[in-house]
Design a protein around this nucleic acid. Structure first.
Lengths: 164, 164
DNA sequence: TCACTTAATTAAGTTTCTGATATGTTCTCC
DNA sequence: GGAGAACATATCAGAAACTTAATTAAGTGA
């Protein structure tokens, strides 16, 4: 069999960091904060969630989530409803308007990537296509192997998230 | 010739979004804001830059960059020095301490990805390795084809960035 | 030389966080 | 079945990181 090239994880890290930066600075039509968009994304993709779960996922305090959901509710992007199985909890779900925002942003990203992909050689596109399942599996492994090293506490008081 | 699989840009978008979210919520040892880390990253990778250039790259106002650089300078992570070719401008460069932070975070990411990659099948790793050059070229195309649709104005007063 | 532009700073105000605390709900264990 | 621990959310004060607007200083050009 042919000697397959070994994967350079350092290069992979670099490339993914670059994509992260590309994705992050996507212009926002509405003035929604980073964490707000992340929460909408989470809700749109994974169904209703409690405030506590959202806080854990975003690595932000529960207080911040409460305040953010309150604001999003005023804007009609999410709904609060009692959790039938737990009287203490509240389930937050995205509204149609909220889902539309997430979808809109995804469409922008897809359009941008499609534009770039169109300028690649057919063989390059095929190579990326062939790698997609493996990349998706890495994400999946990450999700399932969560919380091993302990969830990290919220960062940067004043309300910002970290990146590159 | 064999019918190569067509690239699904939608799937690619999805996978990259997931990696973005993985990367972003990496725990920060030091309490540095999102934009701060992004600026350090930019400086560490591309050499000294003027405040204006940093502001354009981060899609944040010049004022915000001035304030951030002032803070970073107090902490010894960057240095300000006059631009020899333009008396109005200031060149910001990262210090060794600042570069160490960027490198440390990259190492954490690499370690995390290496852990995930180790759990893939050899064929999966090879598929990703084969796609890396094409992915890197997409990033390159993005960088060179910048500013086509006009740079977007800063968003989210109160100071937050946008993501998913 | 005088207006215009560009680069950086400063000041005031806004938004989104953290931290601490309060309130109501569920679980546990005697 | 009741007390107390644990949990889920809400509220409030203060801090951090932004924005806008105004200021200073340096290049550009007719």
């Amino acid at each position: 069999m042919p000697d397959l090239p070994e994967l350079s994880v350092a290069e992979l890290t670099h490339v993914l960091e670059d994509f992260t930066r590309m994705h992050i600075r996507l212009p926002a039509e509405r003035r929604l904060s980073f964490t707000t968009l992340s929460v909408l994304h989470t809700l749109a993709g994974g169904g209703p969630k409690r405030l506590t779960d959202l806080a854990a996922g975003e690595q932000v305090t529960q207080s911040a989530i409460t305040q953010m959901v309150t604001k999003l509710e005023r804007e009609g992007l999410v709904e609060r409803r009692p959790d039938p199985s737990d009287g203490r909890a509240v389930l937050v779900r995205v509204t149609a308007a909220g889902a539309a925002i997430v979808e809109g942003r995804r469409n922008e990203r897809t359009a941008r990537l499609a534009d770039l992909a169109a300028r690649l050689a057919p063989g390059e596109r095929a190579a990326i296509a062939a790698a997609l399942p493996a990349l998706a599996r890495m994400v999946e492994l990450h999700r399932t192997g969560e919380g091993v090293a302990g969830a990290d506490p919220p960062s940067t008081a004043g309300g910002h998230d970290d990146e590159p």
